[in-house]
Computed example of a mutant assay.
Amino acid sequence: MKRRSLLTAASAATVMTLGGVGYAVHRRGRNPYYRGPESDHFDGVRFFAPGQVVDKDLADIARWKSARQAEAWPRHFPSPFPADRPPERVAGLRVVLIGHASYLVQVAGRNILIDPVFAKRASPVRFAGPRRVNPPGIALADLPPIDAVLVTHNHYDHLDGPSLARIWQAHQPLVVAPLGNDVILRGYDDTMHVETLDWGGSVDLGDGLMVHLTPTCHWSARGLNDRRMALWCAFVITSPSGVHYHVGDTGFGDGAIFRDVRARFGVPRLATLPIGAYEPRWFMQAQHINPTEAVAAVALLGDPQALGHHWGTFRLTDEGVARPAEALEAALAAAGRPPDSFLALRPGQVWTA
């Protein structure tokens, strides 16, 4: 494992404490993670989403902090569900929330982890950064054999390098991530098998199971000076059990990212979408959907079954710990949708098809 300086680590922890929204010194410079041809979403140094809102800067952060009205979180917010002990293999589809945005997806006899974070803090250091308020919904030692790990982007609440290294050493899975993230991942274990792809790329896992990378309205950074130097994505998993669309983080944008998934893959069987880390809205809207927007996204996808994550485990923003679930319930009622059509999952909670 490569060591980072204490200063760099503490700075990155501060970025995460600000809800995953830092600022960057936008030097043209060199990209330490990826070198490749320019495209419609890569300028030779940084990735971007077409029409992306201008990055926040120190003045925006100061404005947020000076007027902040954050709700307090409890030190502990235990899940009502016991820690899951998953079966070794599942023929159909079984999905468990580990916590925050981390899932175990068991489908067609394969076991897939998405953004596995088992750390006590969503941070590069142990002494600072958002602290976990409930234990993982599956203990690391209770994972079944893992065939693949999908990493949506490199923020510390989605890419937990030490845990990924332990998972790699124990299970030797294929790790799939967007462009540039292989360098970051191999910094934790240089033997890790990482396959990186661009938006639109696909990986065949065999037996009719494929993973596809699609765009999101988000960004990436591990510190203060590498903003948008590694790509970010959503995943579509196609299998004999249907289409599963997973988003780690995204803003709503104009809704095109959701319409495009439906146009390419059809109406998903399942959509797992973020519902938290959205306040204050003026600061977070470009990168984090709120529950009302999540319900609108499900409608654009064709009304699949939906599961909500990215809430209730790490405090990243200003809303209270239970507000996302409450707001989701209200948004579903306003849209005339049944409450069980979009569940705000808790760690250890299991959904099966």
Rank of each mutant, 00 (worst) to 15 (best):
P136T: 07
P173G: 02
H244D: 03
F77Q: 12
R126D: 02
M1D: 04
V183K: 12
F127E: 00
D142V: 00
R89C: 09
G266E: 12
K2P: 00
G251Q: 07
I167A: 06
N134W: 04
Q285N: 06
F265G: 06
L179E: 05
C233G: 08
A335E: 01
G22S: 12
H100V: 03
V21F: 08
P144C: 03
S341K: 13
A62G: 09
S5W: 12
G253A: 06
V243A: 02
L345V: 01
F48G: 06
P240E: 01
Q169I: 06
F314V: 04
T238Q: 07
Q52P: 07
D115A: 06
F283R: 15
R27Y: 07
A177F: 05
P124W: 10
F42D: 12
A353M: 12
L185M: 14
A327G: 01
E88V: 11
H41V: 14
I138L: 11
R262Q: 12
P215W: 12
P124C: 08
P144Q: 04
V117G: 03
D189L: 04
H76L: 11
T152A: 14
E38V: 15
A177S: 06
F47R: 06
R94G: 12
V175R: 07
Y278S: 15
K56F: 03
P50N: 01
D142N: 05
E293P: 09
K120I: 12
G137Y: 04
L97K: 11
F127K: 01
Q287G: 09
N225Y: 00
D60C: 01
N290M: 10
F258Y: 15
V21M: 14
E71V: 15
S202F: 00
G44Y: 07
T352Y: 07
R262L: 10
T250S: 14
R27D: 07
L205A: 03
P240C: 07
I146M: 13
E71K: 15
G208T: 04
T317N: 14
A297Q: 10
F342D: 02
D207L: 03
D147Y: 12
H155F: 08
A59D: 09
R228G: 02
T216E: 05
S79I: 09
E319Y: 13
A234R: 06
M210Y: 00
D142P: 03
L224A: 02
R259T: 13
